[in-house]
Design a protein around this nucleic acid. Sequence first.
DNA 1: TTGTAAGCGTTATCAC
DNA 2: GTGATAACGCTTACAA
Lengths: 346, 346
Amino acid sequence: MSNFSIYDVSQKSGVSTATVSRVLNNSPRVSQKTREKVLQVMREMDYVPNAYAQGLIKNKTKTIGILYPDVANTYVTRTVFFVEKILKANHYFSLLSCTGYSFEEKKLRLKMMLGQKVDGVVLLSSSYTEADSEHNRYIVECAKKIPVICVNGHVEGPNIYNILCDDLDATYRAAKGLIRSQERGRIIYLYSRDTYSNKLKIQGFLKAMLENNIPVWADSIQMCGGDVEGALDRMFQDPNAKPIGAIMASGDTIAMKALKYMEKRKISVPEQVQIIGYNNVEWGQYTTPTLTSVDAQIEQISSTAVKTLLDVLNGREASQLTMYPGSIIKRESTRESFNVEEPNVI
Amino acid sequence: MSNFSIYDVSQKSGVSTATVSRVLNNSPRVSQKTREKVLQVMREMDYVPNAYAQGLIKNKTKTIGILYPDVANTYVTRTVFFVEKILKANHYFSLLSCTGYSFEEKKLRLKMMLGQKVDGVVLLSSSYTEADSEHNRYIVECAKKIPVICVNGHVEGPNIYNILCDDLDATYRAAKGLIRSQERGRIIYLYSRDTYSNKLKIQGFLKAMLENNIPVWADSIQMCGGDVEGALDRMFQDPNAKPIGAIMASGDTIAMKALKYMEKRKISVPEQVQIIGYNNVEWGQYTTPTLTSVDAQIEQISSTAVKTLLDVLNGREASQLTMYPGSIIKRESTRESFNVEEPNVI
DNA sequence: TTGTAAGCGTTATCAC
DNA sequence: GTGATAACGCTTACAA
């Protein structure tokens, strides 16, 4: 029932706890004979060292905290798993914490991670990047103690490392492609919530519109939360509205809901309305028509995030900002004539 | 940079560490005045207690280990997040570990969790239930130290608690519904890999077939891994094969791939072929036609799993086996005439 | 190459 | 109510 300690092992193998510890830590200062004897005893007792005692003295726990806002967001959840997988491959544990979107809760959870003595922390999602940089101070404070990795967010400060997808440029290029491929009809941008990342996407959208002298109306850019039907109803049912030729979405779920909406209203995609999603989730391949989407390079970003973290933890140099271009995956919800430029490398 | 300890707090507030500890643990044996002073100092210093020191002496860490096999499986990942969310709401941390499907790796990861001194462990997925019960001994051994919760698996032993969906009965009822709703054509069962849960589903499928005197051929039940196209090609391209009237899948991804296959081959669903998935993932609503699927009650099961764990940790009674009936969600990939019976409550 | 002993930050058991 | 002080299981000088 009860677990064995290093003391039990030392007793049974007739050496001191110091020697057992040396064996445990692969110290060269142990004779081959002693080492084998101790290892044998450990195996017999099925001894497992207490990570809490080790963490207490070493002040390193081989554990990384992962904060994420939401279980419903596929982009976030996929990233969590990639990060955990790569961390594990590097012999780190992952301590999870779902924080929600409330500022106070995010702050509290980060503080609790500090109590858990994690060696570093990963903030997954742009929702940890507040508009008012004063509100990011709790992150800057945290970074004084342990390295902070922002995935798809951007917080400036020492010991903070940002890895993100160039959402602005990807959205810009997608919007530009849409403009070139269609003669008429408005282009609508639908997004879920006000996050740092969505703000960038909207900027990219606007940039493409303005550069091409396309007028943008108040309802051209709409926050819809989960209610995509409602937002589309308002636009498609309005008899005075200019006809709509394309819909861009900040996420694939919104785009898929739009696809279903068109199917129900017998509006053909992509002939009458083109649709583009974001994140390139697997299920975009199974809709009818299949969904054109922006691949935000989750795997690439996750692995760079972990690599950066390990570099920092091991005292190596690391870049404080790494940006990947998004890749636009062309499928059936856009026309043949829809094409995009190469990314603007920064 | 460096963190404060209980000692720093005691110095600054002019009391002993014992008193600070009492304040920390809400002991009634502290005067109101002292308590407030100490709390004030803690706030000023932004003090966070070291969970490792606490865990060392208390031998409780308020941390639960979650083992899961695979990041690609939506059922698994959704459950991870539900469980973590509920654990967090109950002030527990979640330590993740993705184990893969290799037996040795599963064993190693569980052992490492023990070293992390988790208060309990959750095994997510039936893949932790080995066919040969001798191979489950490492789980039984672990349960001598901490409670083990098997989600959608079934391991017998003291201190092991199983929470699962009645996959056998759900598949049985779905298959029976299919049989009643169609005059002719074979019913095919497609599954991904040999797991405990898939074995039960196949049993349910067979039960329905045999009870209704439907012949089952060697290729009526096929393991297809990820290659659904290949499996379907073999059956649909074979000129001698009896025509196929329905496909049941062990998971929704397989079913969605089958849906796409039919679309490409211009086989109408559900008129010519009916299709049923399993797990009821969100994206089944966005395919054309929408996907009929078995809801495996992930939320319900996750919350019962955590509730059971907390009951055990708090010395309350808990049932060693909790089974929920699956609920069949009827959508467009099955015919109007497809109907299922009420679950056989056990 | 090995052992002794101090100390990591807490809590718990005593006294007072 | 409060304060010493001994644990908890481990690592690491320092000695031997």
